[in-house]
């Protein structure tokens, strides 16, 4: 299962350890087996992409890592500590912009910082401005959220998630609603930021190319029930260009595997 050959020589301390995680959902008419015996180790500073068709439980898994949901079976540990509620070291960035419309851009970035103890107002402000600068939106800090484009909103959401200095960043299809050009810019941004501020990133997407472009590892999920199907190490050098031929080769291979089991499921 673990075919990881890390291109970067980093300490292999496991930041996140998931063991035998299973989850069921009960709706009025259905009993959904969302996750089935998922085990996964994610190293400190690693960028891992979870890929799979909709309904494969990858977002549920992310919510479980965040502590927003609880597994019915199995355990999740972050830095050796059991995860049972959202913690300050694991911040989540959502698909649709979850920015607060009643706050300005700056207010949004300050929101998480204000929940951290031991920082003066000036320090918080400085930090917020630094991260807005990092995502290239410092001059919009007094803007209202609705005045921003979709890509700018997700940049602010990224700054908001980074500002409280989490060690793990959980990203749930953050670029799903954006146009291709904006997405490509953000691939560049996120790689640059990741190389500057080593965070452990768990990134959920259904876009295989996106996963190959960003991840050290791509973990393929299959649906009904959600299971880890296969893992791919992506030893391409960074920064990666989503349009490069090497990247396309990896993406094609993974896509082939994905298509294989999606078809077998439809047939079966």
């Amino acid at each position: 299962m673990f075919t990881t050959e890390h291109s970067q020589a980093r300490p292999q301390a496991s930041k996140l350890v998931l063991e035998h995680v299973s989850k069921w959902f009960q709706t009025s008419s259905l009993h959904v087996h969302a996750l089935d015996d998922v085990s996964l180790r994610i190293a400190e500073g690693e960028f891992v992409c979870l890929v799979g068709p909709s309904g494969c439980g990858k977002s549920t898994l992310l919510n479980i890592i965040a502590g927003l949901e609880h597994p019915d079976r199995g355990t999740v540990r972050a830095d050796g500590q059991a995860v049972d509620e959202p913690g300050p070291h694991r911040l989540m960035m959502f698909q649709e912009s979850a920015l607060f419309p009643w706050l300005t851009v700056l207010g949004n970035v300050l929101f998480g910082l204000k929940l951290r103890n031991g920082m003066s107002a000036a320090e918080r402000r400085e930090k917020a401005e630094y991260f807005l600068e990092l995502v290239g939106l410092k001059r919009f800090m007094h803007s209202n959220v609705h005045e921003l484009s979709g890509g700018m909103k997700q940049r602010v959401a990224l700054a908001r998630a980074l500002a409280p200095n989490p060690s793990v960043l959980l990203m749930d299809e953050p670029f799903g609603a954006l146009d291709a050009l904006t997405r490509e810019q953000l691939y560049g941004d996120i790689q640059r930021i990741w190389s500057q501020h080593r965070k452990t990133i768990v990134f959920v997407t259904h876009n295989v190319r996106e996963a190959v472009c960003l991840g050290d590892r791509v973990i393929l999920f299959s649906p009904h029930p959600g299971r880890i199907r296969e893992e791919f190490a992506i030893p391409l050098p960074r920064p990666r260009d989503i349009n490069s031929v090497d990247l396309a080769r990896f993406a094609t291979e993974i896509m082939g595997v994905l298509k294989g089991y999606v078809q077998s499921e439809v047939a079966g």
């Binding site: 965040a66 502590g67 927003l68 959202p86 300050p88 694991r90 911040l91 989540m92 959502f94 979850a98 607060f100 419309p101 009643w102 706050l103 929101f111 998480g112 929940l115 951290r116 908001r160 409280p164 959980l170």
Partner: peptide
């Protein structure tokens, strides 16, 4: 959910998220 992941709970969530929203 976003507020919860940033560490907002209980009364803080009410006064800083639910009421303004």
């Amino acid at each position: 959910r976003a507020a919860r992941t940033m560490g907002s709970t209980g009364l803080h969530t009410w006064t800083h998220v639910i009421l303004p929203a």
